[in-house]
Every structure is written in structure tokens, then in C-alpha cells.
Design a protein around this nucleic acid. Sequence first.
DNA 1: GATGAATGAGCCTTCATTCAT
DNA 2: TATGAATGAAGGCTCATTCAT
Lengths: 208, 208, 208, 208
Amino acid sequence: MAKRVEGRSDKLLECAREEFLEMGFQEASLRVIAAKADTSTGAIYTRFGDKDGLFHALVDESMDELILWIEKGQQEFSLKPGEEQKEDVFSYKPEVWEQLVEYIYEHWDVFRLLVRCADINCYEMMLNRLVDIEVEYTYKFLKSTDNDALYNGNLTPMLSHMLSNAYYSGLFEVVRHEMTKEEAFVYVRQLRRFFVRGWADLLESRPE
Amino acid sequence: MAKRVEGRSDKLLECAREEFLEMGFQEASLRVIAAKADTSTGAIYTRFGDKDGLFHALVDESMDELILWIEKGQQEFSLKPGEEQKEDVFSYKPEVWEQLVEYIYEHWDVFRLLVRCADINCYEMMLNRLVDIEVEYTYKFLKSTDNDALYNGNLTPMLSHMLSNAYYSGLFEVVRHEMTKEEAFVYVRQLRRFFVRGWADLLESRPE
Amino acid sequence: MAKRVEGRSDKLLECAREEFLEMGFQEASLRVIAAKADTSTGAIYTRFGDKDGLFHALVDESMDELILWIEKGQQEFSLKPGEEQKEDVFSYKPEVWEQLVEYIYEHWDVFRLLVRCADINCYEMMLNRLVDIEVEYTYKFLKSTDNDALYNGNLTPMLSHMLSNAYYSGLFEVVRHEMTKEEAFVYVRQLRRFFVRGWADLLESRPE
Amino acid sequence: MAKRVEGRSDKLLECAREEFLEMGFQEASLRVIAAKADTSTGAIYTRFGDKDGLFHALVDESMDELILWIEKGQQEFSLKPGEEQKEDVFSYKPEVWEQLVEYIYEHWDVFRLLVRCADINCYEMMLNRLVDIEVEYTYKFLKSTDNDALYNGNLTPMLSHMLSNAYYSGLFEVVRHEMTKEEAFVYVRQLRRFFVRGWADLLESRPE
DNA sequence: GATGAATGAGCCTTCATTCAT
DNA sequence: TATGAATGAAGGCTCATTCAT
């Protein structure tokens, strides 16, 4: 529904972003947004359909791009030989994590909107998209590496889901706590290490 | 652990609980609550101050009790000799975790309110109380066991905070996903194992 | 839902009446009504539930009274011997018609509201209440007087309904055209005569 | 009678008809109409002026044609000798009534629009056009037949107007109740008989 | 302490209509 | 002539909170 006005920055979107960031989705007022943007509430409806549409116009593009990028990365990773996959995962190669953090800071407002200011359903939907991909490729990884964690009970789908969720939730703490980029890099390196070791242990140990 | 469920005797609180559970904090209507309880909106204000006060009346007692119980446990734990502490932590003794899960299911409505139906600030406040205690006693544990993770950079306050947060967030998935108690026990055992190993690795390894 | 404030005239109802009379139900604005009455739109909802409730508060009491009066009259009439009924009907006794007209002029605003300013469903509902009674007692009259019009096909339920409808519609022309009371009396006498003769012919003739 | 149904060739009119029929005049939305017709709201304004204009475009042609047909019939009738007029009227010749009903069913949508979906003023305007003709030719009929009902008080202009109104209102019950054509013929025959006898009595009797 | 009517700002949304393109 | 985004007023209605009773 959103009609991107290509080059010029759209005042209405700008003001909506500000209002949503300041007030959160529910408390944000379309009247205030329209007034700030020197336009009418009606214009919001012509351009974005409704309040939800306006919010998504601020957020969807970046999220879709992120999802695509993640899927592409996972896709490529999953085509490597199993041994190489293992090595990559457990050697703490920081590239992917760091690129993700970079992406977040390049789209800071978008992530602030999603993490702190979105309708709860909207946030959870986006989180679930990420988690689903993560879970899907976790399974592919297990298969590629002949890991039987799913069969010996070390890993259940629920735990798999929960750990992926915890991973992204942990990552988004960066946004929730408004860390500086420097803080974020330190924090995420630690977070990664914690998770990698947790996973390593989970996948390599005998069942309890 | 006492099992007194606060407000059980009070129709107004009962109806408020129902409405908050069904509608969430923001969408819940004081008029509807008062009507359901055969009383007036004014009564809510004389007795609970405002909407927030009403919500807290449903939730605070159980949370305070939980906090107290957790603090007492941590207190007692911290008085043990360092060696014993280490052993307890890393031997996966399930008692505390399981008692926590029991507590959640005994106060199911309270946790549903907090995790799914609260104003976001209220949830985060409660989470922070738990996290702060966890962090505080983590530091005491490090001291008791002469661990230098804080000084060698393996653990930063931020990571410490984040991991405690992830622990409780992970725990509350049980509520968020409305698991059965049986599902919860399986899930939490896996979660515990993941975290314990993560911590062990973090605290015992050399810095990266 | 309407809470009659017994003795004193209610400013809100007064202003609502004015607005509905001037603008009609659909075009009337609750905001304007509240403003005229020096009160808030919310007050309308506390007292009358919604726009419909406000309208009905202006109209229902008088209509219920009228319905009761009509039913009582029909009831009494139906208990007379058949011969007497026939004579009454066909002798043009004007009392009932005239009392009805008097009633309309005593509740002029109510009828103006219903006939000219009501939501169409509301008007039709009221009309149907009147028509249903009329039809019901028409059938009783036929039975009392051993008239077989319903069986010989001179009168169908549809025609019966339509004629009763036409009768009341004709009567309400008095309101629609804002006749003076004097005009109304002349007009209604003629109308009555037309209908009485039509009915007489219908009921007494052979089927076509 | 020509059977051209105006606007049939035009998608915009087609969609407008649908929307007006479904929603009624007031509730119909020009935006919806334009969207359904794959055109713009602006197009409605360039072609039909405004919402009213659009409605009239659906309705006027058929109504004008009907009016013309009625006037022509009345005109021809009024040129007959008085005696013949009398005979025609009171012998229940069904031709005219039946042709009218046929016309209604040939232009069903137009009449549904006017009777059930029009702005009230629009319906009344159309009704008044019919009534005025009827009244005008009633007077001519009285003159042609040397009837003194207007002078002896049996018939006033108001009653004349009202009876014509009741006639058409009664006729349009056919549309209001969405009768089948078969039902309509039965009903209208009865209606006609009722009115003819009423008129006969009115015009031939002594004043009361 | 309880009541519940009143408050009045605020909500999202829809509308017929206009006008620059 | 057609477009369709913009207008801007208005819509009914709900809300947490207050306060005279």
C-alpha cells in the first residue's frame, strides 16, 4: 500500500517515525503525525491505508532486505561440506555476527521501532521470521554434519526454537538498551561465544 | 513457599484479573471491570489509586514473595564455602530450577499477567528486579570462588546483565507459549544445561 | 437505558429534539447536541447509551402509550357483539379517529420526529407495530361478524396489511405535511370516510 | 413503452447502481463506486457533477419516460367524452394499472433505487411529480363529468392530493416488499378495486 | 468509603469534493 | 477529460479519571 516517493524524503514518514519512536505504536497519534507533517490525517489513509500500513512503511523494506540477506547467507553456508560448516561455526568466525550488528546500526531507527515501539504482534512476527529461518538451517546443519542430537533427545524442536529466539532476543538487547556501537561489538562477541559453546556442548555431548 | 493467592477473596480483583488476562493492560477497560464486579469505577480509585495500582495489586504480592524467596536462596548459597558453591552450580542440581517452575505454575495467572498482559514497563521492571539480584549474586559468586573473569575481560557487567536477562526471558517462554507443566520441565532442564555449560566455559576458560 | 429525570425538563433531551427535528436522525450530530446543551458527548453515552438510545428516549414513551391506548380500544371493541361492531365501524363514529388526531397534536414533536426525522428502520418499526395491531383486530372483527372475506378471496393478508399500512401512512400525512389541527380534522374525516366505504365494499361484496 | 435501460453501457453507472442498491444513497461511497468501475472519483465529478447527479443519471431517464407515458395517457383519456371517461374509470379496466406494473418490473432496479435506496427528498420529489399529474387530471375528470365534489366539500384539494399519494405509495409497496410479479398483479388488482370503489363513493354520494 | 454521572480530550477512520497534473 | 492524492471537517464512540453526593 505504501507508495514510495522515490528520491525526496517523505515528510510524513519522517514525522511518523519520530512519533512512533517517541510514543510507541499504540500511543502514537495519527493526528499528531499529520499535524507535524503539515498535512491531513486523510493523507495518511490515502497513502498508507491505515495506522498499521504507516508503521509497516517505515519498517518492512529494511526487514525484508535483512531477511533476504540472512537467507542468502544461510543458503550459501548450507552448501558447504559438513566439515567446513562445523569449522566455521565453532571457530568463532566473527564476520556474520559483525555484519549483522553493522546492519542494525545502519538501520538503527528501524530496529528501534521494531524492538521498542512496535505493536507486540508486529515485533513477534518479525522475530518469528528470523527464528524460523534459524531453526530451518539448524536442522540442515545437523543433517549435513550427521549430528543425531534431534534423535538422541539432546535437542528438541522446542529447545531449538527457544535457543534461536534467545539468540535474536539477546542480539536485540543491543537495541533495547540503546548501546553504542562499540558496546555492542564487545557485547555481541561475548554473546556469540556463549552461544557457540552452548551449542557445541549440546551437539557433541552424550545425552544426559 | 506460601501459596496464598492474593485478592482471591475480592470480586473486584477477580474481575480485574480476568479482564487484564483477556484484553491486556492497555486494552482493558476499568468500566468493564467495575461493571463485572458489580461496583463503581470510583471504587477502583479509592482502593487502588489508578489503573496501574489495580494491576499491581494483582501481581506485586506474588512477585515480592518470589523475590524474597530467590534472595534468601542466593543469600544462603553465598554463605557456603567457594568450593561447595562451584560444585552446586556445575553439578546441575535441579532443585532450584524446578522449584521456580513449580512456583510459576502455582501462580500461573500472575505470570501470565506479567509476561503477556502487562504494560511493557511493568514487565521490564519486574524482569530487572530479578536480573539485578542475579547479577549481584553472580559477582559474589565470582568473589567467593576467586574467579577473575571480570578482570580478564571474559565477563563484562553488560554480558552479565544480558545473560541473566536471557536466562529469565528463556524461563518465561514457558509462560509466553503456555506450555503444559510437563513440557515446561523438559524444556527448562535443557535450558538449564545450556546455560550452565555456557557459564562454566565462560568462567573457566582463558580470555579469547 | 434512558434515565428520566423526573420533574425537571432535561436540557439534553430538549436540544437533541431540536437537532433531530432540524437535521434528521442521520445528519444530526451528537457533538452539536452536546454543545447546545452545555455538556459533553460523553454525557450522552452515560445517559442514553448511543445515538439510537438518545432518539428513542425522545420517542418511545409516547409511542408505547399510544400503542397501549390503541390496543385497549381495540380490545374493548372486540368484546362487543358482532352486530354492534358492524354498526360502529360503518356509522362513521368519529370519536376514535378524532382522539387519535388529538393525541398526535398533543405529541406533535414526537410524531414529527418519527415521521420526518427518524432513521428509516425506526419509523418502519413503529409503523409495523401499529399495522400489526390493526391487522390482528381486523381478523377478529371478521370472525365476530362471520365475514368470509378471507376465505372468498376478497381480502388477502397482504391486502389487509397494505390497507392498514395505507391507513396509518395516510394519517401521518398530517404530520408529513405539517397540517394545522383544523386542516387535519377535515382531512382525516374525509380519509376515514374513504377507507370505511372501501372496507364496507370489500367486505360486503361478492368476490370479483 | 421503450425498454432502454439507461447507462447499461457504462461501467461507472453499472457500479453506481450496484452500490446504491446495496448501501442506499447516504451510505454509498463514491470512492467504492469509482474503484469498482476502475476509474477515479474525479471522473464522477466531471461526468455527473456530484453524488446526486450520479444517482439521477441512474434514474431520471426512466422516470421521465414514465411521466411522459402517464401524461400522454391522461391527456388522451381527458379528451374522451365525460360519459366514456366515467365508464372507463369505474369499470375496472385493468389495462393501465397492469401496464404500470409491467413498467415497474421492466425497470425494477430504477424503482428499487427510488423506493428503497434514494435520498428521501429524491423519492418524495419523484412521488410528487406523479401525484401532481394525478391531481391535475382528477380535476379535469371532475370538470368533464360535471361532478361537483370539489364544491360540495366531498373532495378537498388536500384529500385529492392525499388519495393520489396513497395510490402511488400503495403501488410502490410492490417494490418496497420486493413482491414477485405474480404477487404484484394479485395485490394491485385488489388495491385498484379498493380505490375505485372509494372514489366512486366519494364522487357520487351526497356530502355527509 | 462508595458511587456513577460527568468530563473532555482523544481515538481511528471515512467522506464528498477539489485541483494540479 | 481523466486522474487520484490531498483536503479538512466530521463522524460516533471510548477512555481514565474526577468529584459532588
